[in-house]
């Protein structure tokens, strides 16, 4: 359960940092309605949707770190045979990185209010994301063809389950991204604040799912395991 505890420690650090700015030491029973107390910023500085996405990502992060914990824990079983990582996964990773880069470009274009660039960037991001999912499915088919089926070995089971769950998350993001693209198509101006926010949210989600994917990839290739071993040696 070490991975999830490290993740939660990170969350705890963020919470402590946030609480430290919330006057937790104040004595509310002594303070009645002073001006500076209530005349704070009338509008919240961060859009509500961004806070919402941040908290949702914390939940997704907890989900995947729990899965990683389970993976590392089950890995020590005697019946675990690591499975070969298809070379296609490297290409898929590159495609997902390209998708992220395109979305980042879209954010820049949306902030500039440039319509054509934004349209192109979103199209590239959509296409590469679909390509990534297709690539993942092809990787599955290759593995199955090579005889690595789901129930044979826990390593296989974890591989299919983790890539599947990650793919589902990308699929959900894809739906939102497509909706943003449609909003632009339906005549929303590139300069509208709502559209810009939508693109920014998609980009944040995409970057997060990229990080999750790279960490999962590291698990599959065994690097993460080497890293954990290294940590263990350092501690002991």
């Amino acid at each position: 359960m070490s991975v999830v505890l490290v993740f939660l420690a990170g969350i705890a650090a963020i919470v402590i940092w946030w609480l430290s700015g919330q006057r937790m030491m104040s004595k509310p029973w002594m303070e009645v309605g002073t001006l500076d107390d209530i005349a704070g910023p009338a509008k919240p500085p961060i859009p509500t949707a961004k806070i919402g996405l941040g908290i949702f990502l914390a939940v997704v992060g907890a989900l995947f770190s729990l899965l990683a914990s389970a993976y590392l824990s089950r890995m020590s079983g005697a019946d675990w045979w690591a499975m070969p990582v298809p070379r296609l996964l490297w290409a898929n990773s590159a495609v997902l990185i390209a998708s992220c880069a395109a979305l980042q470009w879209a954010v820049v274009e949306a902030r500039r209010g440039a319509g054509d660039g934004l349209r192109l960037a979103l199209d590239i991001a959509l296409a590469t994301a679909v390509l990534f999912l297709a690539g993942q499915v092809v990787a599955w088919l290759q593995l199955v063809a090579a005889g690595y089926v789901l129930a044979d070995n826990p390593a296989n089971s974890f591989f299919y389950m983790l890539t599947g769950l990650h793919g589902l998350h990308i699929l959900g993001g894809l739906a939102v991204l497509a909706r943003t693209r449609l909003r632009l198509l339906a005549g929303g101006t590139a300069a509208s604040a709502r559209l810009r926010l939508g693109v920014e949210l998609c980009a944040t989600y995409w970057h997060f799912m990229l990080v999750v994917w790279l960490l999962l990839f590291a698990l599959f290739t065994g690097w993460a395991n080497d890293f954990v071993d290294l940590c263990r040696q350092l501690v002991s």
Binding site: A62, L63, L66, A70, A151, P154, S157, F158, M161
Partner: peptide
């Protein structure tokens, strides 16, 4: 999410014959 992960893995064990 911990219960979610446990439930998903158990469903795999029950329906797809894995050995989590």
């Amino acid at each position: 999410p911990a219960l979610f992960v446990a439930a998903v893995m158990m469903l795999f064990d029950r329906l797809l014959g894995t050995s989590f």
